[in-house]
Each structure stands twice: as structure tokens, then as C-alpha cells.
């Protein structure tokens, strides 16, 4: 059975770019699901099982850090790997994300090769 990915980003443009980059990277997903913030992602995960999550950090309603916190507290989804895709490279906020279980990070702007390199070892 094919794998599923969930992309969390408040920017519709960025969700489209990430989707395109996944395909350009040769990562073949059965389904690419989208959510506009952390709360919307938790709603998706209440009804769907995914293999990996790509999440922005700086979002309205529920940001990526709070999403990680809520995900870690839910035994049904806590083991799904999350890769942060963010402009916040090298800052304290990424350290916080890692302490909350983030499996990796990709800095915007990114190339399909960087996506492949980071996700390849997690799938």
C-alpha cells in the first residue's frame, strides 16, 4: 500500500510548492493531504493515518510548536515523524521543535534534492 503525507502550512502557495517538490524529488505518495494550521492538521489526523508530516512553524490558530506538543500527547499519532519546513533555520524555535520530537527540518527556500535527502531516511 502506498504511503501518505500531510503538509501543514498556512500558505496555499507553499503547500503547492511542497507538493510539487515531493513529486520532483521522486517521492511517490498514494495521497498528499493538506492542512492550513496545527488544529486543522489534528482534525485531519483524527480521521486519517499518514506516514509522515511536513509542518511549517509560524502559523495562525495553532502554530507548529503547539501542534508538536499536542501530537506528542496523543498516543495514536505521537510516533508519526514530523519534519519542520520553515524559515526559522538555526534559531531557538527549531531546538524547541526537536525537543518536542521533530525528526528533522528543512529551511525555506529548499530544493527537491533537500526534500529527498531529509525524507528519504524517514520513509
Amino acid at each position: 500500500m502506498g504511503k501518505k503525507v500531510l503538509i501543514i502550512d498556512d500558505s496555499n502557495t507553499m503547500r503547492k510548492i511542497v507538493t510539487r517538490s515531493l513529486r520532483q524529488a521522486g517521492l511517490d505518495f498514494e495521497a498528499i493531504l493538506e492542512a492550513g494550521d496545527g488544529q486543522a492538521a489534528l482534525d485531519v489526523l483524527a480521521g486519517e493515518t499518514v506516514d509522515i508530516i511536513l509542518s511549517d512553524i509560524n502559523m495562525p490558530v495553532m502554530d507548529g510548536i503547539e501542534f508538536l506538543r499536542q501530537k506528542q500527547a496523543d498516543p495514536k499519532i505521537k510516533d508519526i515523524p514530523v519534519v519542520m519546513i520553515t524559515t526559522e533555520a538555526g534559531s531557538e524555535i527549531l531546538d524547541e521543535a526537536k525537543s518536542l520530537g521533530a525528526a528533522g527540518s528543512i529551511k525555506k527556500p529548499f530544493t527537491p534534492d533537500q526534500i529527498q535527502e531529509t525524507l528519504g531516511s524517514l520513509l
Binding site: 500558505s11 496555499n12 502557495t13 524559515t87 526559522e88 533555520a89 534559531s91 529551511k107 525555506k108 527556500p109
Partner: peptide
């Protein structure tokens, strides 16, 4: 809305890079 979203994301990425330099 697509244009506003795209230009907003462009500004977000530039701001993030400058923030990294300031950090």
C-alpha cells in the same frame, strides 16, 4: 488571494533569512 498569499510567503522567506543572520 493566490497573489496575496504568494507575495506574503515571499516576504516570510526573506524575513526568515535576515532573522537567521541577526540571530
Amino acid at each position: 488571494d493566490d497573489v496575496k498569499d504568494a507575495i506574503g510567503e515571499l516576504a516570510n522567506m526573506v524575513a526568515g533569512s535576515i532573522k537567521a543572520d541577526l540571530t
